[in-house]
Amino acid sequence: MLANKGSLKRRLQIVELVRKRGEVSVEELSQAFDVSSVTIRTDLTYLEQQRYLVRSFGKARYLAQKPGENVLVPMADGATRKASETTIARFAAEAVDDHESLMLGTGEIVHKILPFLSDRSNLALLMQDIGMAQPAQRFLHCELVLTGGQLEQGATAMTGPDAEASVTRRSVDLCFLEASGLDRDGNLLCTDPAVARVFEAARRAATRTIVVAYQPQLNERDGEVFANVAEIDALLIDDGIDPPTMELMPRKGLQLYRRESGILEFRKSTN
Results as ranks from 00 to 15, higher is better:
137 Q>Y: 04
136 A>T: 11
42 T>W: 05
222 D>I: 01
104 L>Q: 07
207 T>C: 04
164 E>R: 10
37 S>N: 06
115 P>A: 03
1 M>Q: 08
219 N>G: 14
20 K>H: 12
1 M>Y: 08
132 M>D: 05
205 A>I: 02
19 R>H: 01
125 L>R: 03
213 A>T: 14
228 N>S: 14
176 F>A: 09
149 G>E: 08
7 S>V: 14
203 R>P: 01
254 L>K: 12
84 S>Y: 01
81 R>Y: 00
74 P>M: 12
84 S>I: 15
40 I>P: 07
219 N>I: 00
98 D>V: 01
267 R>F: 09
34 D>G: 09
259 R>Y: 08
214 Y>V: 02
62 Y>M: 12
135 P>K: 01
9 K>Q: 10
64 A>M: 03
199 F>Y: 15
189 L>W: 11
56 S>Y: 14
53 L>W: 03
47 L>D: 08
22 G>Y: 11
71 V>E: 05
101 S>G: 06
56 S>H: 11
128 Q>V: 10
127 M>D: 09
26 V>C: 03
155 A>H: 07
170 R>V: 03
183 D>C: 05
117 L>C: 05
266 F>V: 09
99 H>C: 07
94 E>L: 14
157 A>L: 05
13 Q>R: 10
19 R>F: 03
68 G>H: 12
134 Q>F: 08
155 A>Y: 02
224 E>D: 00
29 L>Y: 05
174 L>S: 11
243 P>A: 00
213 A>E: 04
80 T>R: 03
233 D>P: 12
141 H>F: 14
43 D>R: 05
250 P>E: 11
55 R>W: 07
153 Q>E: 15
193 P>W: 09
50 Q>R: 15
201 A>W: 06
84 S>K: 11
174 L>A: 04
175 C>S: 11
216 P>L: 09
31 Q>T: 07
192 D>G: 10
27 E>D: 05
106 T>P: 00
252 K>E: 10
204 R>A: 11
172 V>P: 13
188 L>Y: 01
97 D>N: 14
198 V>F: 02
156 T>C: 09
199 F>K: 03
114 L>T: 04
12 L>Y: 02
25 S>Q: 07
70 N>T: 09
138 R>P: 00
159 T>L: 03
15 V>H: 02
217 Q>Y: 05
194 A>K: 01
178 E>C: 09
266 F>Q: 13
226 F>G: 03
257 Y>H: 12
237 I>H: 00
